[in-house]
């Protein structure tokens, strides 16, 4: 379950950020998790909740934004939604030449003092 070590990475990143910017409290953290990023958002939220006690994120509201997977067809150029990494073009059945979105896994913003 890599979500646990990723949750630690978030806490470390934000603790470091809080120190640099001399933040005393974080009220909200917005995290973007793409639907085909390889990170399970529910698992990630649960483990983050388990480990954030006594850290700078203890009281923060965790806002998780899910970005849909989108690819461009390698044959007909159609942009289409990808539920997983092996979704084929709904028009011609080809594989996508590129993934346009859905791989994101990042901290977008904080509300803090």
């Amino acid at each position: 379950m890599h979500e646990l070590s990723l949750a630690w990475d978030v806490i470390e990143m934000i603790s470091h950020e809080a120190e640099e910017r001399r933040l005393k409290a974080i009220y909200e953290i917005r995290i973007e998790i793409g639907l085909i990023s390889g990170v399970e958002a529910d698992t990630f939220s649960s483990v983050l909740d388990m480990i954030r006690g006594k850290t700078i994120l203890e009281q923060a509201r965790i806002d998780i934004i899910r970005t849909p997977g989108k690819g461009r067809c390698s044959t007909c150029n159609l942009e289409f939604l990808m539920q997983d990494l092996f979704t084929l073009c709904p028009r011609c059945g080809s594989i996508p030449s590129s993934i346009l979105s859905g791989k994101e896994f990042r901290v977008l913003s904080l509300q803090a003092d």
Partner: peptide
């Protein structure tokens, strides 16, 4: 509170 944009992977 302050709004801080991070956009960090």
């Amino acid at each position: 509170p302050r709004e801080i944009e991070l956009n960090r992977d």
